[in-house]
Simulated scan of single mutants.
Amino acid sequence: MTTTQDQFLGLALLALLVTLGGELLAVTLLVTIGVTSFFLAVVGLFALMTAALIVGVSQRSGPDMYDPVLIDRSHTATLPDDR
């Protein structure tokens, strides 16, 4: 995970704690703030992870590790007729 994803996750956990505290203290404003900030943190985390996934998938992979000509030669060299 990236630093930004960690921060969003920390914000979501903090929002859950604020919501729990507001519920225990019977303070409606804390519950409202906690639920709203939790929702925004989770939406932001999902958006960031989706963007990271799209960027990761759209990047081109590196060059092929295997040269097709060398692979073909190695397979044909082991045939009994080529010995």
Rank of each mutant, 00 (worst) to 15 (best):
R73P: 02
G34L: 02
L30H: 01
P63W: 08
D67H: 13
D6I: 09
S58Y: 07
Q59C: 10
G10R: 06
S74F: 09
V43R: 05
G56S: 08
M65D: 11
M49S: 14
V31E: 01
L45I: 05
P63G: 08
A47R: 14
I33E: 14
P68S: 07
L17E: 14
A41K: 00
L11D: 03
I33D: 04
T3I: 15
D82W: 08
G56Y: 12
M49I: 15
A12V: 06
D67Q: 15
L79A: 09
Y66A: 06
T36D: 04
I54W: 11
D81I: 13
L40D: 03
A41H: 00
L25N: 07
L13F: 10
P68D: 07
L48C: 09
T32R: 10
M49T: 14
T4P: 01
L79N: 06
T3S: 15
Y66H: 11
V55N: 04
L16D: 04
F8Q: 03
G34V: 01
D64Q: 11
L16R: 01
T19G: 01
R83T: 07
P80M: 12
F8S: 00
Q59N: 13
H75D: 07
Q7Y: 13
A51L: 04
S61P: 01
G10P: 00
M65F: 13
L13H: 11
G62F: 03
T76A: 14
T2W: 06
V43Q: 09
S37G: 10
T19N: 02
V55C: 06
G34R: 01
F39D: 04
I54K: 10
V18R: 00
S61W: 08
M1I: 09
S74C: 07
L48I: 03
G62V: 12
V18K: 00
T4Q: 13
L29N: 06
S61T: 06
T32A: 07
L13D: 08
S61Q: 08
I54N: 06
L30V: 03
M65C: 09
F38S: 01
T19I: 04
V55L: 13
R73Y: 13
G44H: 02
F46D: 08
D81T: 05
L79W: 14
V42Q: 05
T32D: 10
T50Q: 11
A41N: 00
T76R: 15
L17I: 14
L13Y: 03
A51V: 06
A12P: 01
R73E: 12
S61G: 07
V42L: 11
L16E: 06
D82F: 03
G56I: 04
G10C: 13
V35N: 03
V69Y: 13
P63A: 15
L14C: 04
A52K: 00
V18M: 02
L40H: 02
T36A: 15
E23N: 13
V55K: 05
F38C: 03
D6P: 02
P63F: 09
T76M: 12
V31C: 02
A12H: 07
T78N: 12
T50S: 14
L24H: 12
F46R: 04
I33L: 15
R83Q: 11
L9E: 02
T4W: 09
A26V: 03
D81N: 04
I54L: 06
L17G: 11
D82N: 05
G21S: 14
P80E: 14
